[in-house]
Amino acid sequence: MEMKHLHFNTSIGAKKPESIRNKEAACPFCARDELTNIIEVDEPIILLKNKYPVLENAYQTVLIESDDCHGDLSTYPKEHLHKLFRFGIEHWLDLEASGIYRSVIFFKNHGPLSGGSIAHPHMQIVGLDDIDYKETVDPEMFEGIVIAEEENGPRFTLSTKPRVGFYEFNIEMTDACYQERFAEYLQIAVHYILNHFPFKANSYNVFFYHINGNIYAKVVPRFVTTPLYIGYGLPQVPNNLEWMAEELSRIYFNVPQTV
């Protein structure tokens, strides 16, 4: 398969504000009256063009999730949770359907190990001119131990063939219509990572995929990446996946653990 690389503009990157580690830095997303290039507003949600488009040959937008700088996906009230994901998924799929871009990616960074720079809760929707992200997607990376599922509805699993390695949570639904349990399962995965994970975790990513009529979200707790993956592309699978799946079922779905 032909390798593809995104090109990063370092001169723009050097100007980006950073408020995840630098707690004294002013948050650009809190200064809502100063925001420019706004695409759509659904209070308190704002979609706008990225002021620092570091990726070349790409159309970059930012989805500000809330007017609360300390808000978090893991604790959003259900009404706001569904409003946010209806809004985000609609704009992502609309940009994809426009046919302007070869592919459109939708993702979220949270925490100091996530690769993000702004602490204020937000996601990004990026149209790629020359790269089709789906060429790097293997369907088996969404396979896993079932934690919860709805009949003819969303499914929540723990990857048995993770993309990068160790623990990755998958949520899937059909693209026919938005289903509320999709966002609720995603919220549970994030809440578990931040509050019940067996290793202290303060960072995660959420990646969305639109493949063969289905929408997938992959929720990945972030730690220092294993050198076996960095150097050789070898994902590792831990030996306690069954335990973790049962633990999630016990905590969030009141399913007794097996002996």
Rank of each mutant, 00 (worst) to 15 (best):
Q187M: 06
T136V: 14
A201C: 09
I20K: 04
G231D: 04
D175I: 15
L248F: 11
M173P: 15
T36Q: 14
A14H: 14
L128S: 10
P44G: 02
C177D: 15
P44W: 00
P53E: 10
F8T: 14
I89Q: 06
I12S: 08
E247M: 10
I12P: 14
I193R: 01
G99P: 09
H70T: 09
D132G: 07
I100F: 14
D138K: 15
F207A: 03
D67K: 04
P221F: 01
Y185I: 03
L48P: 03
L93W: 13
Y204H: 01
L47Y: 02
E18Q: 14
P235L: 00
L186R: 07
Y232F: 08
Y178D: 11
L228R: 05
H191R: 12
T61V: 11
V62W: 01
N205W: 01
I171M: 13
R155F: 00
G213T: 13
V164K: 08
E151I: 12
M3V: 14
N214M: 13
L95Y: 05
P154S: 01
N22K: 12
L186C: 08
I211A: 09
R86K: 15
M244C: 11
Y101H: 15
L35Y: 06
L113Q: 07
N254T: 11
F156V: 00
P162T: 03
S98L: 06
N205Q: 03
Y216I: 06
G115S: 07
G213C: 13
M3A: 13
H210C: 05
L35G: 12
S203D: 03
A183H: 04
L84E: 02
I188K: 10
I12K: 05
A14S: 15
P28T: 14
N109H: 07
P238Q: 05
I89S: 06
L48W: 00
